[in-house]
Design a protein around this nucleic acid. Sequence first.
DNA 1: GTCTATATAGAGATAGAC
DNA 2: GTCTATCTCTATATAGAC
Lengths: 192, 192
Amino acid sequence: MKQTDTKTQILDVAQDLIQRLGVNGMSYKDISEAVGIRKASIHTHFPKKDDLLVALLDRYSDRFLRIVDGIVASSDTSEVKLRRYCGLFESTLSSGNQDKACLYAMLGAELATLNHPLVEEVRSFYQANTQRLAVMLNAGLEDGSFQFNGDVEAMASLIFGLLEGGMLVARVQGGSAGFHQTIEQLMQLIKC
Amino acid sequence: MKQTDTKTQILDVAQDLIQRLGVNGMSYKDISEAVGIRKASIHTHFPKKDDLLVALLDRYSDRFLRIVDGIVASSDTSEVKLRRYCGLFESTLSSGNQDKACLYAMLGAELATLNHPLVEEVRSFYQANTQRLAVMLNAGLEDGSFQFNGDVEAMASLIFGLLEGGMLVARVQGGSAGFHQTIEQLMQLIKC
DNA sequence: GTCTATATAGAGATAGAC
DNA sequence: GTCTATCTCTATATAGAC
């Protein structure tokens, strides 16, 4: 059983820290202590902090969208697809012993402190998600699983904002239980 | 015409910075440059950073909830009341030349980096808002302005999460135009 | 109340030995 | 690839002169 290499360990730890504390609340010192190496050694793998962040965002986005595409392409009903999609955010919040937000939710909140390439990455992730949500909603409207007033694109944005933003709010109030309740309420609103 | 005293200027500038950059993205240096005094002088008014943050949160919460209570107590229809409530978040996002989030949305996102007294302040603000939202929703259900499936408390949490979180997401994508569209879509979902 | 000057701690980053 | 040591910059905070 091959043990995780240092580079991957750094990414794992950095991701966990950012999901809990934010980009500006996380430091190379935090990472070094959790991984068990010295600060300087991190620079061997990621010379600048932005290099680390780019690698982190790419990895997260690839993994996440791959799962989402699997859900969209599955033979599940439209309702189950949407529930599974929301479930991705729910399980993020529940993972570990601390409340973790989506990596992109944290970066979105701190957007104004990020450098240009990172800003575009965040924007692109949001765009990719609302687009896939719109596909799921359209399918559900056509097969009669969903029913709601208003526009599909607006509804997709609303759901994405609710999921990304709602998990930040949930960490303050009811935690994962409160977040689950919010998602159930959302499903009530769009079902027939 | 009395000019604003230094203490108020510090609060105003600090609030603007946090709404744009977050607590961990704002510094005494930023404040001193914007106000036009030296870093050390800020400590005369607010010895520790937490003192400044507490004063900031108190002032913001007092002002905000006072307006909300005014809306709730008004003679407006339930729909207008809810629209005016959502409008508070909309005008926050549009104010100034930069996208500003609700002060409490930023602190909520960075909650895990805050000290105990501040954490409780954030929690209390969220609680106060969802409680007032529930009152507005109940009134609307009774007079027939609103209609939706599910629980009132869950709906209040959903709306608050959508507003606080949605404005963070909106700054990444469509800005205040996108946020406005999201609020319109929300109104569509709960109207008869 | 504001200033200069300084203390102390932490950040990201680099050089060079092993 | 990791280490020690060091650099530079910035953070919050304090002391004491004016």
